[in-house]
């Protein structure tokens, strides 16, 4: 969490990764899972077209996205995703050197509500859709040895 907020002011990225207003706590987890850019940013697409998604990369991003992909679907998926990425790369034709990235639909400061408790105290409703609740808890497979 702290790491993400600090990214907002990171010198490497002048713009926030996300419009943080649109996402909830849970969404931060995937940002972490998807990998926070910590390498030197690529300046252009130079090497990308040689490097369309190979099968190893597909396995890697499936892992990052926490999606089980059966091994026999990997080659097709690599081909499909590569096609999409190659098609997307036409954006490289456009010179965007001095363009500010658009990070929000409206030029507005994020509205904030008063720091007061306005909701809650109904664990039954919150848990009403849980696949396998136990008392007032969600359950998951054991995560400690």
């Amino acid at each position: 969490m702290r790491r993400l907020f600090s990214l907002k002011n990171s010198s490497q990225h002048n713009q926030p990764i996300y419009d943080l207003t649109s996402f909830r706590l849970n969404d931060f987890l995937l940002v972490c899972a998807a990998g926070i850019p910590n390498e030197q940013p690529r300046k252009n697409f130079e090497k990308l077209s040689e490097m369309v998604l190979d099968e190893a990369t597909v396995r890697k991003i499936a892992k990052l996205a926490r999606i089980k992909v059966p091994e026999n679907e990997v080659p097709t998926l690599a081909e499909e995703l590569s096609k999409i990425i190659e098609w997307i790369e036409q954006l490289n034709e456009v010179d965007t050197e001095n363009v500010t990235p658009m990070t929000s639909m409206a030029e507005m400061v994020m509205p904030k509500r008063a720091d007061k408790v306005t909701d809650g105290n109904y664990p039954d409703r919150v848990l009403s859709n849980a696949p396998d609740p136990e008392g007032p808890f969600y359950t998951v497979p054991k995560v400690v040895e």
Partner: peptide, 17 residues
Amino acid sequence: RRIMIGAYVLSAGYYDA
């Protein structure tokens, strides 16, 4: 497919590109 494209374009090293 779309989640994986999304995870890829946001992943380390490709985010800016």
